[in-house]
Design a protein around this nucleic acid. Structure first.
Lengths: 257, 257
DNA sequence: CAGTGGTCTAGACCACTAA
DNA sequence: TAGTGGTCTAGACCACTGA
């Protein structure tokens, strides 16, 4: 690990130059994922700056999500966690007929151990964005909230909203929706699924999301809002998910019409 | 704007408590988009802390992307820029036949003024990820790099890679690809487009990307890698795009098979 | 225990903005 | 010019980690 000197005459402030050096070392592979960066004391010594200046350089890399600080241990180049691919065939009827919900089917394909917790089923007033997508003027909806894990790491928060008229009295309103999951129960109830629309955005997580997904600072989330339509063209479910961005690649396949 | 006092006995450090207060004020609508936060001097006065402590509180909100600092003016609640919806029919042949490239067709639909700059056409060795998707063992590719604007705001960086065997000698190798864009030229050359696969991820931008997209700190990017296949099932183009996340909603429509 | 990062203080000088 | 944020210094005490 060789770091050059900083240029005190440059317009670029010292802390940025130090950040540049460290970033370059990471890009060049001199610092590999999991490696420890020079400590604040070492940077202070090497560059002849105050400790707060060294800290500021590190802060820059942290907010870029390039490194992770561990109290008492050091600052480390981020380990890239295994990525989960979500292909657009993840809602294939074949899976449901085999009794597998989408997340379980994915787990099997990608080879991770799936689990769910924080399941909450409530009847609430639908948020405006949900009402709009479900084409409801007003009224209550059933909301199913849960958190998904891949190998004991929380990776996704999801909330499904369904019109009460559709969900009430079915297993969708139970904690356990049974084999094939929510979509299998919708089809049991006569709502054969025809198409999905997913709206994908990214943003920084709220404090609450960061806590529930155990995200380091500087890690964005993918937000996917999926609307499911039955063969009559009626929207029957809106599912809003917040996913830890580093853990996912969403794959979509479409025809050139 | 009323901010309560901090609890010096709490485990939660003062700068976090101050950040909590400001965040709550934003969430509650007491501070609306565009509003100025209390200045560092005011926070210092109000809470009885050192300036660096007040700064650290503001830094927290900045890294969350909630506020934007403007040198000499103040710190402001982020204004949400208008969003561009990208539907999966954006590559419809009808557009190409009307002489419109995808970005132009989008612009027309969403009502913004489109422009492009930093067009660079080069012959380079393809990155491994591109080679893999183009099913090339080795060899040069044509790369078309450019930056897209919506109403004079840079919103997207894009690089297309095509096998030289396909692109060489066509207008794809020119700065101006002509009416209908690159995909129209591919079809002229006998590569009728059949399907696209898009892989979507999100991450924090590199310094270079932040500069070219003029992004504030704490704003993530959407990364979309699109592979275009012709009717023979041959991958003919890989397009890698980096989009300013707050400016986009990607929309995908797929059948429940 | 020594070494690490986390937080805080009380100053300083600078560059930018707007009146 | 006064007020804003940007950067830097040189200390301090703390909590966490690992030998």
């Amino acid at each position: 690990m060789e770091l050059g000197p900083i240029d005190r005459l440059s317009d670029r402030p010292p802390f940025r130059q130090i950040a540049d050096h460290l970033r370059a070392a990471i890009d060049a592979g001199q610092l590999r994922p999991g490696d420890r960066l020079p400590s604040e004391a070492e940077l202070k010594q090497h560059y002849g700056v105050a400790r707060m200046t060294a800290r500021q350089a590190i802060q820059e890399l942290r907010s870029e999500g390039q490194v992770v600080a561990e109290h008492g241990r050091g600052v480390f180049v981020r380990q890239v966690p295994p990525v989960r691919r979500l292909a657009s065939d993840r809602f294939a009827r074949a899976h449901r007929e085999a009794g597998k919900a989408a997340f379980l089917a994915e787990a099997e394909k990608s080879g991770f151990h799936p689990s769910v917790d924080q399941i909450e089923v409530t009847r609430t007033e639908a948020p405006a964005a949900v009402r709009e997508r479900l084409r409801l003027d007003s009224g209550l909806v059933l909301s199913r909230s849960r958190r998904y894990f891949a190998d004991d790491r929380p990776v996704e928060l999801a909330v499904s909203y369904l019109p009460l008229a559709i969900a009430e009295g079915t297993a969708i309103a139970e904690n356990n929706t049974g084999p094939g999951g929510l979509y299998a129960r919708l089809e049991d109830a006569g709502h054969t699924l025809d198409r999905f629309v997913e709206e994908v955005t990214a943003r920084m997580p709220t404090t609450e999301e960061r806590r529930r997904l155990e995200l380091q600072a500087g890690v964005p989330v993918l937000v996917v809002i999926r609307t499911a339509y039955d063969t009559a063209g009626t929207p029957v479910e809106v599912c809003s998910t917040v996913k830890a961005a580093p853990a996912f690649v969403l794959e979509y396949d479409f025809k050139a019409r």
